[in-house]
Design a protein around this nucleic acid. Structure first.
Lengths: 361, 361
DNA sequence: ATGAAAGCGCTAACAT
DNA sequence: ATGTTAGCGCTTTCAT
């Protein structure tokens, strides 16, 4: 069972033309006579000719393939982003070469290498190191078109598409405050470094630092939380900031449980991402499925789990597919020789109101 | 900002050796002197040489890339399967070219064409048409190694990895029956053809048809439901078979609501897939979040939503990553020249017991 | 509008 | 162990 490949040469021979002419027809270049064209096409389809994009790529220098470095394609977030990318890229007839970094720099470096060796025409990266990424910088310097998703990298001037985290968190927490809540807890993954939170709170007491765009998602959302309180002229109670060390629902659950047992428990809880939301829910449903009527829940939902839970929780859904589509479109524009300054787009999440904000307290 | 490409020729020139020797070093072939090797390597890294896999692929005829045709990479099922594939494939240093079919034949055909033109070394397909797929047959005939995921195609003799639907459904429903339930409802997406269900029930009254492996997932799970009842010598009550016409949670919800309002309502509900499970839960939580204590719920969970719901529901989780890994391993084995009859593997799902079966009724 | 020929970057035969 | 040469399948000058 060996593959019998039909080449352009054979088609040309069959049609009695030169390989150049056959190539012109099959590759849609230049001028060809109408009859010749038909003859070549007939022979090609009769022989079952299928172009070899590898060979084409070798000479044109373009593979019509886009490389993607995602964190984990199994996560709902990246899966949806990927789908957005895929829709645009497939729509243009290009292929998609996909890798996972698992948010590890070494894997991202390896993926970059693999994709570059495969001569992809462009790269869409969800970078795991926000501070510095020599391998990405190097790729860009070598002329690789690139678009960043979800995060920026310091000093890497390429198109970036991210979620408008700060403003949307601010707006969301504002609603809670407007609804009358005065003890709004926030539960967020704020890294293993325990001193950083104190520093951050101190540094944001009067004004927010300027490089907020470089913060990771959770910190940005915390910043929104702080901004909302500042706007209301409210003091920040550090006890209400439930800093979870790891990215784990269980850890979030424990943090939430501790807060619920506290004497001055929050009347509302703002969950800064999907896993934190799950943890909070797990804490609530530890004794059943019911949400206490004296607790308002506002969750960032990047896990799609809100769909499955009944009313009583307000959610903020990330524009994930749109994120992917925007990044892909930016990249394709670059590949199409578009010039200009790098764009830096922030897409606004969508509020899903289920009425809990108004009804409670 | 133009890409300055470093070729093997330049490296060879720099190291003062022939291109063949440089290639032998850089491509890890044949014998080379130790000093020469070092010299070439030094020059290569100094010049920043990066192999061009396109050129390599043209001559070797292998691209070290696997093509995947998934239904929808944004769905939790495919996302997880894909991750399984990705883990194995990346582990071997190969790339992954990914497409979506959206379960549409025309898109699957187009994807097959795209991937073949890209000269992928193998194809992993989740076929959308179980009856016949000339394009896949053609690809196999042309020598394309292939592995099928989740579904078989009639007459396509290639490695197949699927979920053991019939047996696991049978076992699951058996548990309900053993727990004393006598009115077990099943909610499943059974297509728009309403007469088919009657035919199916009639044909399975005495024995199951032999080509069960070719049935779609839902029908297989219904078959398991029937088998369990047969094993118990129980009559099938058609009223308990909630056939949902489309793949929609809302439709499932309506079917479940209708069943709950029925005078002889089921005491247990077997949900044949994730969306049906969501529909059932939505029906239940229409008036709140609580699961009635006189209803046992047993759900196929391919949406991961069970994670978020508290106790009270038993679930059957599909081995999705394992599915992907197995398919990828099979395919890589074929590519590595492995011969032999096509394997046809059924992976068993995992029961997640939450105690509802024993405690109820 | 068509053909002849060169060559993309690499590897595989065949020499030496 | 290393060099020479041919050529993978295609596109692209440069002729005609």
């Amino acid at each position: 069972m060996k593959a019998r490949k039909v080449t352009i040469v054979e088609v040309a021979k069959g049609a009695g033309v030169s390989t150049a002419t056959a190539s012109r027809v099959l590759g849609k270049y230049g001028y060809v006579g109408k009859t010749t064209k038909e003859r070549v096409l007939t022979v090609a389809s009769k022989l079952g000719y299928q172009p070899n994009k590898i060979a084409r790529g070798l000479i044109t220098g373009r593979t019509r393939t886009i490389g993607v470095i995602a964190g984990d394609i199994a996560s709902p977030f990246y899966a949806a982003v990927l789908r957005g990318i895929s829709d645009v890229v497939e729509g243009h007839g290009l292929g998609l070469l996909i890798t996972n970094s698992d948010e590890r720099l070494d894997r991202e470096v390896a993926a970059t290498k693999l994709l570059r060796e495969n001569q992809v025409d462009g790269l869409i990266v969800s970078p795991c190191d926000v501070a510095d990424s020599p391998h990405l910088r190097e790729a860009v310097k070598a002329g690789m078109p690139m678009a960043l998703i979800d995060r920026k990298v310091r000093g890497l001037l390429v198109d970036t598409v991210a979620v408008e985290n700060i403003q949307s968190s601010r707006d969301a927490v504002m609603r809670l405050l407007l609804a009358g809540h005065r003890r709004v807890g926030v539960i967020a993954e704020l890294g293993p470094d325990e001193t950083r939170l104190g520093d951050f709170l101190a540094s944001t007491e009067n004004q927010l630092p300027e490089d907020l765009a470089l913060l990771s998602t959770s910190w940005q959302r915390l910043a929104g939380y702080l901004e909302a309180h500042h706007a209301f002229g409210l003091e920040i109670d550090p006890k209400l900031i439930l800093a979870v060390a790891g990215h784990s629902a269980t850890a979030a659950k424990n943090a939430a449980l501790a807060a619920f047992n506290h004497t001055a428990r929050p009347t509302a809880l703002f969950c800064a991402d999907g896993l934190m939301s799950v943890g909070a829910m797990a804490a609530i449903s530890a004794r059943g499925l019911e949400i206490p009527s004296d607790l308002s829940l506002l969750c960032f939902d990047d896990l799609d789990w809100m769909t499955f839970v009944g009313p009583g929780i307000d959610a903020i859904a990330q524009p994930r597919r749109r994120l992917g589509r925007a990044a892909a479109r930016f990249l394709l524009a670059r590949i199409g020789e578009a010039e200009g300054a790098p764009r830096d787009i922030r897409l606004a999440p969508r509020m899903i109101e289920r009425g809990s904000l108004q009804s409670i307290r």
